[in-house]
Amino acid sequence: MEVIMKSQYKKTGFLFALMGCSFFMALMLPVHGDSADAPTALKNDILAETGIFPSGFELEEPLQYYGTDNHKLQDGTIYNYMNGGGVVYLKYGFSTLVHASLKNTKNTRLTIDVFEFAEPGKTKSAYADEAICPPGFSNMEFNGFQAKAYFFSPEFFLYFIKNNRLVYIYVSNDEMAEPVKDLAARLFQKIR
């Protein structure tokens, strides 16, 4: 009995010692001022789905994820992406941005940004703000949704919203406007 107790005592002591070590080791790990979440924390990460992009376009680099000062994501905050341009997005409760940068063999650049806001009402307000969606757009009707489309030769880009997402798609050559519109329609369907 005494032997068993000793053994248990030893085991318990060992466990406590292990926990203590773990605790101190955790304290010794580098501490970052802000937590940088993994992108998997994002819900409805539609750009990560395979086959979503127009054919012929390849990602130039992995998808990028930006958050806010209080909730940095792996690539930092919206300021890291667009400098001071981010201020107006924060006004509407911006929380995350997923950014894709692609190119085709003809050097045409395609950019897709999916912004997530606090709630749909604020997303609508962001969409209406000229500091985000500038004037000079044409209203474009799709099946079941509208987009603000910009034909600024030689570029073409559009914005649309669904729920609490605002999506921006840009292509450096307006001859690629049709595939971009198709992409917009696909993304609209995917957003839940």
């Binding site: 300021y79 400098n83 001071g84 341009g85 201020v87």
Partner: peptide, 29 residues
């Protein structure tokens, strides 16, 4: 032209890119 407080994003704002990342937001407003 960025309007807002800066008016233009020109010579002064260009040097935001010479700063450390953590100092960049300090320029806003």
């Amino acid at each position: 032209c960025v309007e807002s407080d800066f008016g233009l994003s020109l010579f002064f704002k260009n040097h935001i890119g010479s700063l450390k990342d953590e100092d960049m937001p300090r320029c806003h407003g």
